[in-house]
Design a protein around this nucleic acid. Structure first.
Length: 791
RNA sequence: GCGGGAGUGGCGGAAUGGUAGACGCACGGGACUUAAAAUCCCGGGAUCGCAAGAUCGUGCGGGUUCGAGUCCCGCCUUCCGUACCA
């Protein structure tokens, strides 16, 4: 069991209550541990770890240091130590440092984050709604801040390719592929008119270069200020400010195109055309180069923008005959494009790229949608970076022997009022010495919650090792993770970040597999019941009364719906209460019975009673409630139930393998129904034992008790799962449906060995009235399954 | 907006392209009980019918097939993710 316990919620709670997050975190862990243990799960508690524990933080920092010490060798396609980085000759010391830093997998850059001046703090995306803070509804804006970044994009190609190696759900692989978003195209440089500046763009359609009639930069683009004319300065400034209050999500969701011309022009590299430069929020700074060439004739968004602002539209790809849309975005034959007229799109692309390369104006390029990972937070409750900033502006790692860098004690977790991270408030902690003994400052950012969860599966291998993060031999024995169970919400973030770290560790020789998780399974979320009034407003559960055949709130009927459990809706289910009322086995079994593991489904406490009743009936099958004694067993295996038991054992075993626990529980209920039906024979000792062993993985507490009462001194935990015999699975008589033209008309009771001709004959007799006076055109007989007569 | 899923009785759900609704909850009826709880038995998709049975039925509209909840195309609704919640 591992506790991933850094993060925003713990910190916000500390702000609200003034209690140190380490105290609340410890208390929460105690509660969770007690609850989990009360359910009887078979976790190995000797391997318990917490991401917030200094002994764990130490190695999280160690991995960060490794990332800092690694560069990605494009030629070899792998990460290598900085000591092996070839450094160009003729650089001075500062240039050399800058060059090395520009290649590290961990580097510093300015990146935009939400800043709310009224609250005096940096906010998470989810804390900002429509450009306003969730708390207090204050205006917020995107502010560029110094951030630690991780160069995950260097691994984009391998993260994409290696998906083929893992047994993951197809939809998850698909999501990761889309997220990484590889696209082939070209980088093209546009010269700015009357200037040395060049605007570099990425395009997937270099063949449409002749149709580029304007350019659009992201409002945050570094050239914006320089390329703005005096006349446009105010309008541009206003627009940049306005954009800063929008999220990227809003920007790309907005259909209405907005923008401002900078008042400067660029030169189209293929035809020397002078084209205007605009800024618009539909171009994102974080994708490609943050600038595009606009081809309104063949790109939807560019087309909308051109029509909005009356910019020229040129057709450069022949649309197919009968095409009626305003904007043809498919492949075709190039037109109005001197160099490539008449060429189909793929050839046209190649030709243009070759031309640009020969002119030094562009080159073919593979672009990824994936962005480098912002790896720092301006918060308290996270891992400190093992970094010291020297007076000369360079930085160095805290020596390995001095790890972990522990968090300073802070009295006050409230925002500092400026974008500086909270740790800057810890003056004593902040001031330190660098390796040469000079005054220096510690890094004040902290790591995001992902850091700890990126490698915990490796620490489980060797959780108490004080010399190294894990022992190499043990790593070889355990890795890769056989089965990784986690929510779908992790599909592209956690699961991609962890794979990235793992690949760096692999390249640097610390792990033996290129992928961490062999097989992946997503469990569904358990939701609660909620109530919705006529205006679709959700009503807290404690204000709703159950009436005959419905529910009402203040006398008005309300609808029962499914919603996330939340304090505000008063529909949170506490496992302690369920345990008290129904017991651990009932709770476990209900969770398995309520539906397929992978789907989202609502909790319904009434249904727990059904499972509890099943377990009570199992008890009464074996124990006499009056006397409390074991009932006498049948002399021999009751033959009527032996087949049913074999079927049950097979079904439960198969269902466990495919993690279909709901149908496994159902199979055991069916067996119990058969074994306890009026007139059913008494189960033999062997049959009882086999049934108890089948049920034991689901209801271990009950089954251990029954096992002991059935005369065993040792736990059943190490008993093998019961076996079944193939020949016991079939019945002497099976039912075969007979259809006429696909409609069910009769059912036959036949032997499973009946031959096809005989079966057809019987079928014809059974549905004679439907065949009368009609010609049989076709007969479909599927042995043991069905007969269909087509007339 | 973009990416990925999901839609079956009153509810949770079951069903290798082959009898739709297993199993359970809730509900109705009955047995036991002075009564209730607990327990046990029976019933149940909709419509028509005393019944036997017939017709319709897996979000909507098409298609493939002897046969579609299941496969294909187009919609609708809804959930998840969208990079600082984790």
């Amino acid at each position: 069991m591992g506790w991933d316990a850094f993060g925003l919620p713990a910190e916000q709670y500390a702000v609200q209550t003034g209690t140190h997050p380490s105290i609340t975190t410890r208390a929460n862990i105690e509660t969770f541990r007690r609850q989990i243990q009360s359910l009887g799960f078979s976790y190995d508690w000797d391997r318990e770890i917490s991401t917030t524990h200094p002994a764990y933080v130490r190695w999280t920092q160690w991995i960060f240091a490794l990332l800092y010490d690694t560069w990605f060798d494009e030629a070899q396609g792998k990460g290598r130590p900085i000591s092996e980085l070839p450094i160009p000759e003729g650089l001075n010391a500062a240039q050399k440092t800058a060059f090395i830093n520009s290649r590290r997998l961990a580097y510093i850059d300015e990146m935009a984050v939400w800043w709310c001046s009224a609250l005096g703090t940096v906010l998470a995306n989810e804390e900002v709604i429509d450009g306003k803070s969730e708390r207090g509804n204050h205006p917020c804006m995107r502010l560029p801040l110094r951030q630690w970044m991780l160069r995950i994009t260097a691994y984009a190609s391998r993260l994409l390719r290696d998906l083929e190696e893992v047994e993951w759900p197809d939809e998850t692989k698909k999501q990761q592929r889309e997220w990484i978003g590889e696209s082939q195209g070209a980088e093209v440089d546009f010269q700015v008119e009357g200037s040395e500046d060049k605007i570099r763009v990425f395009t997937t359609r270099p063949d449409t270069l002749y149709g580029a009639t304007f350019m659009v930069l992201a409002p945050e683009h570094s050239l914006v200020t320089r390329l703005t004319s005096k006349e446009q300065a105010d309008a541009v400034h206003d627009y940049v400010l306005k954009t800063a209050s929008k999220s990227e999500l809003e920007r790309s969701a907005n259909k209405e195109k907005t923008g401002v011309a900078l008042g400067s022009y660029a030169i189209n590299p293929v035809n020397g055309q002078r084209i205007p430069i605009w800024i618009s929020d539909y171009v994102l700074a974080t994708y490609g180069t943050g600038a595009i060439m606009s081809v309104p004739g063949h790109d939807e968004r560019d087309g909308e923008f051109a029509r909005q602002f009356g910019l020229p539209i040129i057709q450069v790809v022949q649309a197919p005959e009968g095409f009626e849309g305003e904007c043809f975005t498919g492949d075709g034959v190039a037109i109005n494009s001197e160099l490539i007229n008449g060429l189909p799109t793929p050839e046209a692309k190649k030709t243009i790229i070759a031309h640009l390369e020969s002119q030094g104006k562009g080159k073919g390029k593979t672009q990824y949608r994936l962005r480098d990972w912002i790896f720092s937070r301006q918060r308290y409750w996270g891992e400190p970076f093992p970094i010291i900033h020297r007076q000369d502006g360079t930085c160095e790692l805290v020596p390995d022997a001095q790890l972990p860098v522990e968090l300073p004690e802070l009295e006050d977790f409230r925002p500092s009022g400026n974008p500086e991270p909270l740790l800057a408030k810890a003056r004593e902690w902040l001031n330190t010495k660098d390796s040469s003994g000079k005054e220096a400052l510690r890094e004040t950012n902290t790591m995001p919650n992902w850091a700890g969860s990126c490698w915990y599966y490796l620490r489980f291998i060797d959780p108490r090792n004080n010399e190294q993060p894990w022992d190499a031999e043990r790593e070889k024995y355990w890795m890769p993770v056989d089965l990784y169970v986690g929510g779908r919400e992790h599909a592209v973030l956690h699961l991609l970040y962890a794979r990235f770290w793992h690949k760096v560790l692999f390249d640097r020789g610390y792990v033996s597999t290129s992928e961490p998780f062999r097989k992946l399974f997503h469990q569904g979320m358990i939701l609660g019941m909620a109530y919705e009034d006529a205006e679709k407003k959700l009503i807290p559960s404690d204000e709703v009364k159950e009436t005959e055949g419905g529910f009402e709130h203040n006398g008005q009927p309300v609808k029962q719906v499914v919603a996330k459990m939340s304090k505000s809706l008063k529909n949170v289910v506490n496992p302690d209460d369920i345990l008290k009322e129904f017991g651990a086995d009932s709770l476990r079994m209900y969770e398995m019975f309520m539906g397929p593991l992978e789907i989202t489904k609502p909790w319904n406490t009434k249904d727990v009673g059904g499972v509890a009743r099943f377990l009570q009936r199992v008890w009464r099958l074996i124990i006499d409630e009056e006397t409390g004694q074991v009932k006498p067993a049948g002399e021999k295996d009751a033959p009527e139930l032996e087949r049913a038991l074999h079927r049950c054992i097979k079904k439960v075993g198969d269902d466990i393998e495919r993690m279909a626990f709901n149908t496994a529980v159902s199979a055991m209920m069916i067996f119990l129904n058969e074994a306890s039906a009026g007139g059913a024979p008494t189960l033999s000792q062997s049959q009882r034992e086999r049934f108890v062993l089948t049920l034991a993985p689901f209801a271990p507490h009950l089954c251990e008790e029954l096992w002991e009462r059935l005369g065993h001194q040792q736990t059943l935990a190490y008993e093998p799962f019961p076996s079944y015999a193939e020949e016991m699975l079939t019945d002497d008589v099976i039912e075969v449906p007979v259809q006429v033209n696909g409609k069910l008309r009769a059912r036959l009771q036949v032997s499973p060995e009946i031959d096809t001709a005989e079966l057809e004959k019987m079928a014809r007799q059974a549905v004679a009235e439907w065949l009368e006076g009609k010609e049989t055109k076709k007969v479909v007989v599927i042995p043991k399954r069905m007969v269909n007569l087509v007339v």
